[in-house]
Design a protein around this nucleic acid. Structure first.
Lengths: 181, 181
DNA sequence: GTCTATAAACGGATAGAC
DNA sequence: GTCTATCCGTTTATAGAC
């Protein structure tokens, strides 16, 4: 394996491992030592790839943000409120369920709320999504529906026994129903 | 002021201050030093009232749990699914909005999930509430609806500009709509 | 690219004076 | 009941060898 490939590999492993641990114990309760131990490298090696702990969090969230950005751009090409809602919900639910074991690194985690830049990005995405679903001037009820569905972490935690397919269906029905205000 | 009164006062201040800071920055990111500084006493003095940091969190959550327990007992006396849902939602929303600045110390905070005892209590309350609203064997969709509404933190955060009354109405409509599965 | 070693600060928690 | 002083483990982060 080339050195560049090794670098890419290690960097990716850090992100996967960190995501899993952040989701399981929360960002603040996860130390770099824990991350390093879990993937059998030293702390110093982790620091070689990320200058700070919060840089890891930012990298993770930037990935999620990019995913949603792409999905919303696709949604914009669809005509009809109903079809748009279905597309957004499907994309959202698929991503959440796919990362079920790792995710949800919810918008709710205090660490996320603390990061100004990430917060601004998430707020921008939320406005973009609501514009697509509800038009230029969403009502308060519509906005409330959006923010409620945007954090399904507690719901996922309540259904550990469901298969991925079953969970996906439950979430899809739930989100669609809530969003069709 | 008597010594006993002073004690009660300090203890109460610790709880209010801790609740505010936990809600703002998360439990893990709030140190006892921060709490002590905020209320102008020393860390050692805080320890005089609570043997550990997690004891503060438990005291806070025990308050919330007792409140919900009482409310659900009231609900059990009401006949009719619709009226019961309205009572539960009203009680829930009132409490959440009343503690708007402090709360929500969501069930989502990793610190809460880490505490076995508290988790068990919350799970018991959730079952009790669902039994009242949905009968003895709630469907997955009904359960999902319950867990979604049980964490309205993100919604509250989205409406900083609303008055308490306005926020209460938005939340009431939202929760009722979601729960009437 | 990965390691060992260590710095510097902060965390929770306790002892003992007043 | 509140304070000062302190212990001790852990944390983030860096320096420098291989």
């Amino acid at each position: 394996m080339t050195r560049a490939a090794q670098a890419e590999r290690t960097r990716a492993t850090i992100l996967v491992t960190a995501r899993k641990l952040f989701a399981a114990h929360g960002y603040d309760a996860t130390s770099l030592q824990t991350i390093a131990d879990e993937m059998d490298v030293t702390k110093a090696n982790v620091y070689y790839y990320f200058r700070t702990k919060s840089a890891i969090l930012e990298a993770l969230l930037d990935n999620s943000i990019a995913f949603f950005e792409t999905m919303l751009d696709e949604t914009a090409k669809i005509r009809g409120k109903r079809a748009r809602a279905e597309h957004v919900v499907a994309g959202f639910v698929d991503q959440v369920v796919a990362n079920r074991a790792l995710s949800p690194l919810g918008q709710t985690d205090p660490s996320v709320r603390r990061n100004e830049r990430i917060n601004a990005e998430l707020a921008r995405l939320a406005e973009k999504a609501m514009q697509l679903l509800f038009g230029d001037e969403p009502t308060d009820d519509q906005r409330a529906a959006w923010f409620l569905t945007s954090d399904v972490g507690p719901v996922i935690a309540a259904f550990p026994h469901l298969t991925d397919d079953e969970l996906r269906e439950v979430l899809r029905r739930l989100c669609l129903r809530v969003l069709r205000v």
